[in-house]
Design a protein around this nucleic acid. Structure first.
Length: 881
DNA sequence: ATCAGATTC
DNA sequence: ACTAGAATCTGAT
């Protein structure tokens, strides 16, 4: 720290430099931020390096300064400030306010003059001064107590000038800089100078005579050449010098104490950085203590400034029985707690943190006293009078279940709430949610970090709920997403029974088939190579075998299925490769991949259903993903045989919504053709074909139907003629005529799409039927492709997301009914528009009624929701009853 | 860590 | 310049 140092910054100069050094950046709202970003970066860097006691920034104010009175063309060669830059000066001032750095500006004066004045006054009080600027004029201010930091190329490098350095570089003293300019001029400020005098002549003259005035007084003693150059130019020389001279006594009140720096206002700065989307700077502010040791420049800022220290919260480690009793009393009394459990699924709970409103945070390490501490946890969780708040309650339910603890009164899940508020966040770690919604930086690791998280979870409960209510997402949360947490936990815990021997058998069969195929492929290629390597495969196909290249990837030849299908005619190796790929996928991902994830204890697959992953509101499934089990091709479909009921006497029942997305489209668009088709129970693709091709329903061929089907898909995804043409393998023109026809016959759909995109552009987000919201900053991108993507997402999200709403609603209803009717049947999977149950044969009839009722009436639309139900001894065998 | 390619709805 | 929405997993580099 150098408390006796004042840093004075030339705001205009730095912002201009930054603007030209950094390519145009924008945030998602289209606000251009490159200059203010660069400026802020420089600011943080210099503060971090110098750790000054005082800071001030100066700006120009007013187009006309006193210099213009002397010389109208002063700065006459300057270009007007670009439109992209002007608003950034305002943003820079916002940054300074958040940094709590005072800035000065005075009508009719340039930043330089204010800097000169501030520097003089600071020197007078004995302070050291450091001037940060990109403008070499400032070198005239260098003195024993004042140094200048000049930006070099770009903005990252700084060069420090003291008196010696000025002399080395210019051959003059700082006070002679203005004389230098008086003689030489300065094209950048349009200061004329004396024609014919350049750097060399000027410095020689100044060495001999000191200053311009002296030179002019001694004109007669100069060489004839110099006399000729200077005579009659006295006024220009003196004027030029005057223009270059920084005023050091601007009439301003300056209280240096205003400049003493206490560090930034953490909240404001974070909010501003978030608004401007300065992700790397936010990261610097939120950096973990561990990474502070590294010497990345700005981390020091965090540790040195009290205001930026991470959020701390005290906690007590509970060890005695009295303390345990006491916290139970506190929890019962308050009726609400936040709980943070640590531990790993399958390994039990390591510790738990308890946050009780208006009390300390308590840490109970399970290992300290296993029985007593788990008793406390059980008492808390199983007491239905105490409301429980978790971040990722589903994970907590898993952990608790392993200790046979049942969670009652799940009151809030901050992770799920944060997801609803922004379904496109990269992750929902407590620290990031707290940063986003509480504007605090939590410590990164250790017990302190976890205690702070527990405390934050408690506070987030209210904050997030209020935000949800504000945008009418509270019912979505309350009646659907929160209850769904419990439903999903039960599905995961129940798991899916699999025939492990069946998987092994398939693996062995696949191994044989793959061996045979690869031998044949290597033979045809004339050499051994790794067929799994797109790179090696590309070399074989396109270099050795000289097959035609249709498509390239970033890194080389494309060898995807689309390409290989086109090449199948050319060489018999190609079909074999396609088959190889198919089998290799089946073996690695499915036969072997699934086998590896069968739980040793239960003998089942316990996939995780992620509730906070997708942008649209769908669930996702992982470890293993049970939402992409093959079905399209028979060879893959056979994998489904290994998915079996949990016990003898049970069956698998599947229930899937028929055409749910197109029904939602019908409902939302109110398109007459679609409404009628669904109300009459017509096959929607046949109906569409009849419309598009202008033939009666009974004359629609299967070819026509399949094309219409592709068009319907295209509509849901946000159609383009190109994409449709590729899919249907027809000309782009033909594809376009399908689309035109489609919109002509279904004008309601056209209007709906236009309306959704329009609304998205005015609101910045789209909604599903149940008010799930997705923001689409892509709509405002300058990039054509990104913008188009935004438009397609605007069309697709309400449809896909509403379908997700509906099935989630059905799941909650069904689970409730199954419990109330005390049935054995268990929901085990959800595959976007399909639910799968493991049920005793004896319950099948009841279950079908229940499931059909709940799914078809989950939400009443203007078209019926049809559900197809199938039953079987395994997933493969499931057939309509 | 990223890419290419596969699988699903 | 690129081109249909949403995902997860594997193997190669």
């Amino acid at each position: 720290m150098s408390l006796d140092t004042l840093i004075v910054i030339d705001g205009n100069s730095l912002i201009h430099r930054a603007f030209h050094a950094i390519p145009l950046l924008t945030n998602s709202q289209g606000v251009i931020t490159n200059a203010v970003y660069g400026f802020t970066n420089m600011l943080l860097k210099i503060l971090n390096e110098q750790e000054p006691g005082l800071v001030a920034v100066a700006f120009d104010k007013g187009k006309i300064t006193f210099r213009h009175q002397d010389y109208a063309d002063y700065k006459g060669t300057r270009k007007a400030t670009p439109d992209e830059l002007r608003p950034q000066f305002i943003l820079a001032r916002d940054v300074l306010r958040a940094m709590r750095i005072p800035y000065f500006e005075l009508e009719g004066f340039e930043a330089d003059d204010l800097i000169g004045t501030i520097a003089s006054q600071a020197e007078a009080t004995g302070l050291n001064v450091l001037i940060l600027t990109g403008d070499r004029d400032a070198l005239q201010l260098v003195s024993p107590k004042t140094k200048v930091l000049l930006t070099r190329k770009g903005i990252t490098e700084l060069e420090i000038f003291d008196e010696g350095k000025v002399w080395d570089k210019y051959g003059v003293t700082p006070s002679q800089i203005i004389d230098l300019k008086g003689l030489q001029g300065d094209p950048s400020d349009n200061i004329p100078g004396v024609p014919g005098i350049g750097e060399k002549t000027a410095t020689t003259l100044l060495k001999d005579y000191g200053h311009v005035e002296e030179i002019l007084a001694q004109l007669d003693h100069l060489s004839p050449r110099l006399q000729k150059l200077l005579r009659g130019k006295e006024d220009i020389a003196l004027l030029s010098k005057k223009l270059a001279t920084i005023i050091r006594d601007v009439p301003m009140e300056l209280d240096l104490s205003e400049c003493s720096w206490r560090g930034p206002d953490q909240h404001k700065l974070l909010e501003l950085f978030k608004e401007l989307e300065f992700k790397s700077l936010i990261k610097q502010l939120t950096n973990s203590p561990a990474s502070k040791k590294e010497k990345t420049s700005s981390n020091k800022l965090v540790s040195n400034l009290p205001e930026l220290e991470t959020y701390q919260v005290g906690y007590q480690t509970v060890t005695t029985q009295e303390e345990r009793d006491e916290i139970l009393v506190q929890a019962s009394h308050s009726g609400k707690v936040a709980l943070l459990l640590t531990g790993v699924r399958g390994q039990g709970i390591a510790a738990f943190y308890l946050a009780v409103p208006d009390q300390d945070i308590y840490l109970l390490r399970v290992a300290d006293d296993l029985d007593s501490n788990l008793t406390v946890l059980r008492a808390l969780c199983e007491n239905s009078e105490i409301k429980k708040i978790f971040h990722d309650a589903k994970d907590a339910i898993w952990l608790l279940q392993q200790q046979d603890i049942v969670l009652k009164n799940l009151y809030f899940d901050t992770m799920v709430a944060a997801y609803l508020l922004n379904p496109t966040a990269a992750n929902y770690d407590v620290n990031d949610v707290a940063l986003e919604h509480l504007n605090i930086i939590l410590p990164a690791e250790g017990e302190t970090a976890l205690a702070a998280q527990a405390e934050s979870i408690l506070r987030l409960g209210k904050v997030l709920y209020d935000k949800l209510a504000e945008r009418d997402e509270d019912r979505l949360y309350q009646e659907m997403e929160l209850p769904l947490v419990q439903v999903l936990a039960e599905m995961e815990l129940a798991g899916v029974a699999v025939d492990k021997q069946g998987l092994k058998d398939m693996s062995a069969e696949l191994y044989q088939a793959i061996e045979t195929l690869s031998a044949r492929i290597h033979e045809l290629a004339g050499e051994n190579f790794n067929i799994n390597s797109p790179k090696q495969l590309g070399q074989i196909l396109f270099e050795k075998l000289k097959l035609p290249v249709f498509k390239k990837t970033k890194t080389g030849y494309s060898t995807d299925a689309e390409v290989l299908e086109k090449l199948a005619e050319e060489h018999e190796i190609v079909a074999l490769i396609l088959e190889y790929r198919q089998l290799a996928k089946l073996k690695s991902t499915y036969a072997d991949g699934l086998a590896a994830l069968v739980d040793a204890k239960t003998g089942r697959l316990h996939s995780t259903f992620h509730q906070t992953v997708t942008a649209t509101g769908r669930l996702s499934s992982a470890e293993p993903n049970l939402q992409n089990i093959p079905i399209r091709l028979e060879s893959g479909r056979r994998i489904r045989k290994v998915f079996i009921p949990r016990q003898r006497g049970n069956l698998l029942l599947t229930a899937d919504y028929s055409q749910i997305e197109l029904r939602i489209l019908a409902h939302m668009s109110q398109d007459n053709s679609f409404l009628e088709a669904f109300r009459l129970g017509q096959d929607i693709h046949t109906r569409t074909a009849s419309e598009v091709f202008g033939v009666p329903l009974d004359l629609v061929t299967s070819e026509m139907r399949s094309r219409a089907k592709a068009v319907n898909f295209g509509i849901v995804y946000g159609i383009s003629d190109f994409g449709l043409a590729r899919d249907l393998k027809v000309s782009r023109q033909e594809a376009k005529s399908y689309i035109d026809n489609y919109f002509a016959r279904c004008p309601g759909v056209r209007r709906y799409i236009d309306r959704v995109i329009q609304e998205a552009k005015t609101q910045g987000y789209v909604n599903t039927l149940l008010n799930r919201r997705r923001y689409l900053p892509e709509l405002f991108s300058k990039n054509f492709n990104i913008r188009n993507f935004g438009e397609r997402a605007a069309m697709n999200t309400p449809i896909q997301g509403s379908a997700a709403d509906i099935i989630k609603l059905a799941m909650v209803k069904i689970n409730k009914e199954l419990k109330e009717q005390q049935m054995q049947a268990q929901m085990i999977l959800q595959v976007h528009d399909e639910l799968i149950f493991d049920t005793p044969e004896t319950e099948v009839e009841t279950l079908i009624k229940l499931v059909r009722e709940c799914m078809e009436n989950a939400l009443v639309l203007d078209v019926p929701l049809d559900v197809d139900i199938k039953l079987g001894l395994n997933w493969y065998e499931a057939k309509p009853i």
